[in-house]
Design a protein around this nucleic acid. Structure first.
Lengths: 169, 169
DNA sequence: TTTTTAGTTTATAAAGTTGTAAACTAAAAA
DNA sequence: TTTTTAGTTTACAACTTTATAAACTAAAAA
């Protein structure tokens, strides 16, 4: 879906208005993407806004205005996104306003999120196996296979982190 | 959480009743786990049941009875889980009943699911970058970093799949 | 001191999800 | 042919989520 949009644009230079239009469309697409990932619709659109626009910092009122949402929705959703670590805000000296922006955290933390999921499922497989009467039952054999896969994946993530660190230098 | 349960059991041999009790508790834990992954509560408990019990195939009525749920909930949830490819059923010759069991699919498909997610996010980063006026803005630089990470991850998954295949032989 | 700014909190409406009971159906058994 | 088995479908109740309007608050500006 994103790929097809991409291919329609790469061959010409857009005007500012064309780009703005496409950015607004992309915000909606990103909103739907995050929706499917389990975020609430407004959270997805806020993330989209902060990701795609040329302006990369928005105040509370600008977000309310831009996305046409209520102040209370904005207030609650911004607090949640900040607590989850997806966005952050800065304040400028002499101003009371908060400027929200995406939290550009270390890309390695993305890998670490994957790692946590793998470790969690490995724990479940271990405990299921521990409670199986017949260690050679079809499910027991299957969970052993999955366990060996988690081992490979964790090793692979480790190498990946090292490669990324060395490519940064 | 699972880890702590695990450590309390490893040092003695359980009686059948103790094991059964612990298996039922684990079904609830796995239910909560899948809940958090976005499954509905009943779906999570059905998956738990089919994963942990010594008996690894259950009929419709056994599931209804075991989990104390209505036939309609069971009917709808089993259909959804089957369509998603999480469970499957077999029929025995001369019987009309369906026997449900977890779909013990190739572990490599687990990696492939991760790969799809990575590819999807790479598409988003590409399109966001395509629409950025300033290719050196903080977000643009950040998304370029994330893109290079997706490259490393995909290469890493590829190697991981090869290792797994060769370890299987 | 009063007003404005920059939000937060509360109460509630609207919509969506989850699960049930009861009626229904199609195939097999009696 | 009637009854039983093995579910499915429908209608609806209960609950949860999502978003809003309106009232409120605390800090800064006028």
């Amino acid at each position: 879906m994103f790929a097809s949009l991409f291919l329609t644009n790469i061959f010409w230079n857009m005007t500012s208005e064309e780009r703005l239009k496409k950015q607004k469309d992309l915000i909606e697409e990103i909103g739907i993407y995050f929706d499917k990932e389990g975020f609430q619709p407004i959270a997805g659109r806020i993330l989209g806004l902060l990701m795609v626009m040329d302006k990369e910092r928005f105040t509370f009122d600008e977000i309310v205005e831009e996305l046409q949402i209520s102040k209370s929705s904005a207030s609650i959703t911004l607090r949640n996104l900040e607590m989850r670590g997806d966005i952050e805000y800065i304040t400028l000296p002499g101003e009371r306003k908060r400027y929200f922006q995406i939290n550009r955290k270390d890309p390695l933390s993305v890998i670490e999120e994957f790692e946590k999921k793998i470790i969690k499922s490995k724990e479940i497989f271990d405990y299921v196996l521990e409670l199986k009467e017949d260690q050679n039952s079809p499910n027991a054999v299957f969970f052993k296979e999955l366990k060996s896969l988690t081992g490979l994946l964790l090793a692979s993530f480790k190498k990946c982190k090292e490669e990324y660190k060395s490519s940064e230098k």
